[in-house]
């Protein structure tokens, strides 16, 4: 056996970077965690299979454009059509971002370093947002690249594509703020998964119930507001207002006014972030 020389303790006199760098490092670490990178093979299965499912419609779309010379899924409707997969991804992966640090009480190791609670939460939200954005924007971009290559008749729908990518970012912020807030209230991962999926199902299921009730009582304009209970349709209604895309609600039912939708969207994001901040202020003081 070769001998190991003990060269003694060496001091570190290299650079010490600021809090911005630390926040970025935490965001990257958490983002890797969302996709199970640097973890066991088992923790990669769910995120990568869901990402693969998201790519399937894009591939079918490209094939349709190439062979049948007609468009498949519209860019603006992609997120709404794929909402069940996106919601499953959020429910399964949001708890992995926040729960372990709470459950295993890792938080003090972070807070005894220069980063504060605000930066910790920011990094976690950023990581989840980027993950969700990639989940939606990568297939969109693939479809757009396909459209450019196939060279369909007429100009490419660049504006609709860019609008959809922007709305994917907005959707990602909304979903991660809420998903993380909900899953941070329990240190148990399984419970977090169940809570997030339950909230999504509740918001989804309430749409037809509320819509149907109001519609049958002849209150059509009020019924339109029911769409906004679901985060995907809420973001779609804002997109429809900002970019003039057709509503992707069921049977293309009209949404209520755009500015109100945007206000609700901003309000919901704020509520999610505040809930998260309050949760962590409490956790930090333990």
């Amino acid at each position: 056996m070769s001998e190991i020389y003990d060269i003694g303790y060496r001091h570190y006199d290299g650079p010490r970077l600021g809090r911005g760098y630390a926040t970025r490092a935490l965001a990257v670490h958490s983002l890797r965690g969302v996709f199970g990178l640097g973890r066991t093979a088992r923790s990669k299965i769910v995120p990568f299979s869901l990402a693969a499912i998201m790519l399937l419609p894009a591939i079918v779309s490209i094939a349709l454009m190439a062979l049948a010379k007609q468009r498949g899924i519209p860019y603006s409707g992609f997120a709404v059509i794929m909402q069940a997969v996106v919601a499953t991804f959020l429910a399964s992966q949001a708890p992995t971002v926040v729960a372990p640090d709470l459950r295993h009480r890792v938080l003090p190791l972070y807070l005894s370093r220069p980063v504060a609670v605000v930066e910790y939460v920011t990094a976690k939200v950023a990581a989840m947002t980027v993950a969700l954005f990639l989940l939606v924007a990568v297939p969109l971009t693939l479809m757009y690249a396909g459209e450019l290559l196939v060279d369909l008749e007429g100009p490419p729908l660049t504006q609709e594509y860019l609008g959809a990518v922007l709305m994917a970012l907005v959707l990602a912020v909304l979903l991660s703020a809420f998903g993380l807030a909900i899953s941070s209230f329990t240190p148990r991962r399984g419970l977090g998964v169940a809570s997030v999926i339950a909230v999504y199902l509740l918001s989804s299921a309430s749409v037809p119930v509320v819509y149907g009730t109001l519609y049958s009582s002849g209150n059509e304009s009020a019924a339109a507001w029911a769409w906004l209970a679901n985060p995907f349709w809420l973001v779609d209604s804002v997109q429809s207002w900002l970019f003039g895309t057709p509503p992707h609600s069921i049977e293309s039912a009209a949404y209520p006014s755009g500015p109100a939708s945007l206000a609700i969207l901003v309000l919901l994001i704020a509520v999610g972030l505040i809930a998260l901040a309050l949760r962590y202020r409490k956790a930090a003081s333990r």
């Binding site: 009480r105 890792v106 003090p108 190791l109």
Partner: peptide, 23 residues
């Protein structure tokens, strides 16, 4: 106890060194 069980000691300590500002 304050260690997450699913990461290696190396990965955890490298990460926390970065959190203290080390490149």
């Amino acid at each position: 106890e304050c260690l997450p069980p699913d990461v290696s000691a190396t990965e955890l300590v490298v990460h926390l060194a970065q959190m203290s500002g080390l490149p």
